[in-house]
């Protein structure tokens, strides 16, 4: 017992101290955080100062976005449509766009800024991103052609499908139903093939 205790005493200083900082890494400088902290939230946190009009947004969009998303944000090929589709979410083939599906406008600003600029060879200014976002709203008939989007009025814009999203409820709706004893024999009287793949492989 005494031996065990002394081993513990010796080991303790080298054990990971979960709640105590280990002193690794260094403090991030404000300019470094500013360079990488680009995210925007639905409550507007993260939006930079700036503004852009629908008219300017159309110019920027046609120049930088329309090749994949179409002049009217209707989509090209398998590249997604950004406009239209409102009221189609219960259709056999729903069209999921900013107007018909997205819950929050901040997602549009954030995604253009994060993923639709540098990788595609375009560097849009903050004002240009506001303008393109305004144009996407306009192409969904959600604002008029004289609309100007800015940090100040951003959160006043609500998208039609915001209330259409709810937290994963599988734990309530599905898990009780699928936790059961499994039938092992004579589980059904017969079996028919209802569908066979058309494509027979490569």
């Amino acid at each position: 017992m005494l031996k065990l205790l002394s081993i513990l005493v010796i080991l303790t200083p080298s054990m990971p101290l979960a709640a105590e900082p280990m002193g690794l890494g260094r403090v991030a400088m404000p300019d470094e955080i500013a360079a990488w902290d680009i995210d925007v939230r639905p409550d507007g946190l993260g939006l930079p100062a700036g503004s852009g009009s629908v008219a300017f947004g159309e110019e920027v969009f046609v120049e930088n976005c329309a090749a994949c998303h179409g002049d009217f944000a209707e989509g090209v090929g398998r590249y997604p449509a950004l406009a239209g589709g409102i009221g189609t979410l219960t259709d056999v083939r729903p069209t999921r766009t900013v107007g018909s599906f997205y819950p929050y406008l901040s997602t549009v600003w954030d995604f253009i800024n994060r993923a639709m600029t540098v990788g595609y060879g375009t560097e849009l200014s903050d004002d240009e991103i506001y303008a393109v976002t305004a144009y996407v709203l306009y192409s969904n008939d959600l604002v008029g052609d004289d609309f100007v989007l800015s940090r100040e009025n951003f959160t006043s814009i609500r998208l039609p499908n915001e209330g259409g999203f709810y937290m994963d409820n599988r734990a309530q709706v599905e898990l009780p139903r699928f936790r059961h004893l499994a039938c092992m024999s004579e589980c059904k009287s017969s079996v028919e093939i209802t569908m066979t793949v058309k494509n027979t492989g490569e």
Partner: peptide, 29 residues
């Protein structure tokens, strides 16, 4: 609070038959 970014709203969310959408369906069944 969560950020509701593109890959957790427009994508990786589950549109149900009633036209409403489950979000944050993280666990794999």
């Amino acid at each position: 609070m969560p950020w509701h970014h593109r890959e957790e709203t427009s994508k990786y969310s589950d549109l149900m038959a009633d036209g409403r959408t489950r979000r944050f369906t993280w666990e794999m069944d």
